[in-house]
Design a protein around this nucleic acid. Structure first.
Lengths: 231, 231
DNA sequence: GTAATATTCGAACGATCGTTCGAACAGCCT
DNA sequence: AGGCTGTTCGAACGATCGTTCGAATATTAC
């Protein structure tokens, strides 16, 4: 009954639709999910949904675009101020894993419906994906370059895709593994990748565990059911 | 015009349909692909296709079941006679990567449509997946146990999923990376995983490169357009 | 109060989906 | 020739799909 606690803004309802859609797409596949399913899940009418998106494809685009945009902004914040490639690599890994765990539905939609969008939507998503991948490639190249080993095989680019594979495969893990503490998962992946990729020093390995940190910022902008607070 | 060269058996036509379906499912997604698309691709009539499968779901099941069955049989042959966990691990990795590269369409369908099948079909595929995963888990456990480190983190089970992630993510790589020699890819993945996972010895690392071997057997049983010959 | 605006809805559109069915055609046996 | 079996097909079924549209309802402005 307080003055503005009752009113629900457009943005909040919009986000509610996007969250429900991401959950459905994640668990049932994009093409298998009908707009009618989403209407049922959000307890809205079929046509009423089209007030929040122009088409089913644009709905997927909204989810993926927002997820990539938040991911990019958030990782750049996390990397800001770090100086050594070793710190940056550890931070990138723990950030990605933590983000993945906090927004599993959206990240699964990002990974699983990777090439679902064509045309202009697909182009824009691809561009965001390239930008995000490039961040990791550059870190890995600098990491190996400390020891002058950046031209060895596997190339920094291949290394990045191998590392993305370890991390993005998370959503297929059985639940008892998938829901272990994100720090444990991030540490496991970091240890395997760092120690195996050319250029790891003894001190890198020694200080690995203490530098894993998986907390994160809010995802959707509304106040409701926020995923958690910052560092 | 030789007596039996002209005749096309049921099995050959069946396999032709399965191969075309796997290619369509891999490039366009299972739910996005219609039976009419498959009819067009195989230059058959819509109803004529149902002579080779009972339903679209059973068609996907046939593809996945055959892929897992061949994969299992083939990896067990490759592992037979090997004694050390180190040899077995290297062989598993190079076999999986080689198999993946030789049957990219089918393996993408296996990975990407992992949970698409429900009911009895889904159960049977899940059972095959479990059996295949268990092979790798057991190898990794034995690998770490040589040095008494099988209880360290990451657990052999988590290690297996991390390793599967590296390998199964292959189908999302850009083409210029995806089509590098399979031995190079397998070596990169093997090096990263072996050196990072607990229990790797100095001699393991030294002999790594020489033990990578990615050739493989025939996939579909027909003679036509076989993928290649033996070891 | 009334008017303007923001939001939701029911009903229906044409398109496409997976599947079925009986007929047609092929090749082989006698 | 006729009959049998394996293979293919055209046409159609009911169901469901994404989307549209004008009307109804809430909300806000005056």
């Amino acid at each position: 009954m307080s003055p503005r606690t009752q009113g629900v803004t457009y943005e909040e309802k919009h986000v509610e639709v996007l969250k429900a859609a991401a959950a459905l797409f994640a668990h049932r596949d994009f093409h298998k999910t009908s707009v009618r399913d989403l209407a049922r899940a959000t307890r809205r009418s079929l046509s009423g949904l089209y007030y929040y998106f122009a088409s089913k494809e644009e709905l997927l685009y909204q989810i993926q675009h927002h997820c990539y945009a938040t991911l990019l902004e958030s990782v750049e914040t996390a990397l800001a101020g770090l100086s050594t490639p070793h710190e940056k690599l550890l931070t990138f890994i723990s950030h990605h894993v933590g983000y993945f765990r906090r927004h599993m539905d959206e990240m699964k939609v990002l990974a699983h419906e990777d090439l679902t969008l064509g045309g202009e939507y697909g182009q824009k998503i691809l561009e965001l994906k390239r930008r995000y991948s490039q961040v990791l490639v550059d870190i890995i190249r600098a990491y190996a370059a400390r020891e002058g080993r950046e031209r060895e095989l596997p190339s920094p680019e291949m290394g990045a895709f191998i590392l993305f594979g370890m991390m993005n495969w998370l959503y297929t893990w059985p639940k008892r593994l998938r829901s272990r503490p994100p720090e444990e998962v991030a540490e496991a992946i970091a240890q395997i990748f760092l120690c195996g990729y050319p250029g790891c020093t003894a001190s890198d390995q020694a200080t690995l565990r203490d530098q894993i940190q998986c907390s994160g910022q809010r995802f959707w902008k509304t106040a409701g059911s926020g995923h958690e607070g910052g560092t």
